[in-house]
Structure formats: structure tokens, C-alpha cells
Simulated assay, not measured.
Amino acid sequence: MFQLAMLLPMLAAGWRRLHDTGRPGWYLLIPFAFSIATMVMLLTGVAAFSVLETSGADPDALRGSASFLGATGMIVMSVLQLVFSVMMIWWLSRPSQEGPNEYGPVPSN
């Protein structure tokens, strides 16, 4: 419940912070969209191998390829998610641009 309540204020603050650094605010959605895509791909893979298994394919023959694809996919997606998260932290921690940028004047303190 707390995370859902804090989602909109955190998105607004991050969006504004990215604009302060001269980057588009939608960049904040990159890690989130990648996480959603990862979940969809994993669930699609599980469903596909379930259908293959119930259609009469040998489950033991599928087990090796499913394990390889699943493990490889998880490793690749985890590394990419880490890269996107570190990149986002880097962007959000940069100082504001000097002077006005394409998103408006420098905010006053």
C-alpha cells in the first residue's frame, strides 16, 4: 500500500529532477518498462513450454532447453536491469544544468 501511495510523488520528483539535468522525464520509465517486459517474456516462456509439454512433446527433452533459455534469459535481464538502474541513479544524482534548458528556467530554491 505504501509503495502504491508513493508511486506518483516519486515519479513526479524524478521527472522534475531529470528535467533539471536537461534530460526528458520519460527516461524515468525505462527501468520500469524493462521490468514489465521481463515479466511478460518470462510468463510467455513458461506458458509456451507448458503448451509444448501438454501437446505430447517429451518433457525430459524440453527440460534442458527450457532450463538453458530460462537461466540465460534471467541472467541477461538481471544484468540489463542493473545497468538501467545504475544509469538512472547516475542521471538523477547529476547537478542541474546551468541556466535555462529546453524544459524551462532554473528552479529557485
Rank of each mutant, 00 (worst) to 15 (best):
G22C: 04
R23G: 01
H19G: 06
Q81Y: 04
G14R: 04
L92R: 10
L8K: 14
S55C: 05
A12F: 09
S65N: 09
L52T: 08
S65K: 02
M88F: 06
L18Q: 05
S108Y: 01
I36H: 05
A66G: 10
P9D: 00
P24H: 08
L69D: 02
L11S: 10
Q97L: 11
G70V: 03
W15G: 03
N109E: 15
F68Q: 08
M77V: 08
M10N: 11
P107C: 06
F68S: 09
A12D: 13
Q81S: 15
A47V: 14
L8R: 12
L43V: 13
G45H: 00
F49T: 10
V83F: 10
L62H: 04
M41H: 07
V79A: 11
L69M: 13
L82H: 04
Q81K: 01
A61C: 00
P59Y: 00
A12Q: 15
P95F: 12
E102L: 11
G99P: 01
S65D: 05
V46L: 10
L18N: 07
T72K: 02
D58E: 10
E53S: 14
A5W: 07
T54S: 12
T54R: 15
V40W: 01
S96H: 09
S67Y: 05
M41K: 08
Q81H: 13
A33D: 03
L28K: 02
Y103T: 12
S85T: 15
F49E: 03
